[in-house]
């Protein structure tokens, strides 16, 4: 589905070049559930932004379904089937949640369809459908609307950037269920950037990014016990 080859992203800083993403090779198979994790500032969001086309790589290639999309714009990648839910969703004055869902879907969605997307992220449609996606929404509310819009996009490859951030326990359980459905029934390829063990439990593949490099990757069973061991200071099983 997605292949990154020697992908690099440098920014100029104090006369030298700062390596934000450093020669990353990564393959995301069709229908897989990949969790990317790693320390703050490691480069996870930058990697997602490179895949979506928001940042332009300074080296390497991005292949999507066999096509080299490295030079394609954001909307061109969107049309080919890539979607990205931001870590920090922007607010829009005057755009209702319902309108935003329709814009994401690329067609005018019925009230029932919108309601289903909202329910999946734990938002009561009666309360939120006609609310504006403006600064009056709380952080967790805006975050859940953002996730719902990506569900409405029905893209083949969906990337969620820390979907758990700011989300309460009840909504979080619904979210986990929704992710299961995305890969299970809907057969999407899903990448979730996350620090949450419960989301990692859903993964087939895990990737740890630190200092702009892939420092570990493998199946969940290979990576997760080691990771938890390191974090807890427990002895590896």
């Amino acid at each position: 589905m997605l292949k990154l080859e020697q992908l690099s992203f440098q920014v100029p800083a104090d006369g030298t070049n700062l390596e934000i993403i450093d020669s990353v090779d990564l393959e995301i198979p069709t229908g897989s559930f990949t969790v990317i994790t790693g320390p703050n500032g490691g480069g996870k969001s930058t990697l997602a932004r490179l895949i979506m086309g928001i940042e332009k790589p300074t080296g390497g290639r991005i292949l999507f379904k066999g096509e080299d999309i490295t030079a394609l714009s954001i909307p061109e990648r969107a049309k080919r089937g890539i979607g990205y839910a931001f870590q920090q969703p922007p607010r829009f004055k005057g755009l209702t949640v319902r309108r935003l869902l329709s814009l994401a879907a690329g067609e005018s969605l019925s009230k029932d369809a919108c309601s289903a997307y909202l329910t999946a992220v734990g938002l009561d449609p009666d309360e939120y459908l006609n609310r504006e996606m403006d600064a009056s929404l709380s952080g967790g509310e805006a975050k859940r609307v953002e996730i719902a819009t990506l569900m409405a996009r029905r893209a083949e490859l969906v990337i969620f950037d820390e979907p758990e951030a700011g989300i309460d326990l009840w909504s979080f359980s619904m979210l986990v269920e929704s992710f299961r459905t995305l890969v299970g029934e809907d057969r999407r390829s899903v990448i979730v950037i996350s620090h949450q063990e419960r989301i990692m439990q859903l993964a087939d593949t895990m990737v740890i990014i630190a200092g702009g490099k892939v420092c570990q990757s493998g199946t969940r069973d290979e990576i997760l016990p080691k990771l938890l061991g390191e974090v807890d200071g427990r002895k590896e099983a």
Binding site: M52, I54, S73, P75, F86, Q88
Partner: peptide, 12 residues
């Protein structure tokens, strides 16, 4: 960010 968000929906 608003522009980019809408462009990720496929808009120019």
């Amino acid at each position: 960010d608003q522009l980019i968000k809408l462009m990720t929906f496929g808009m120019t």
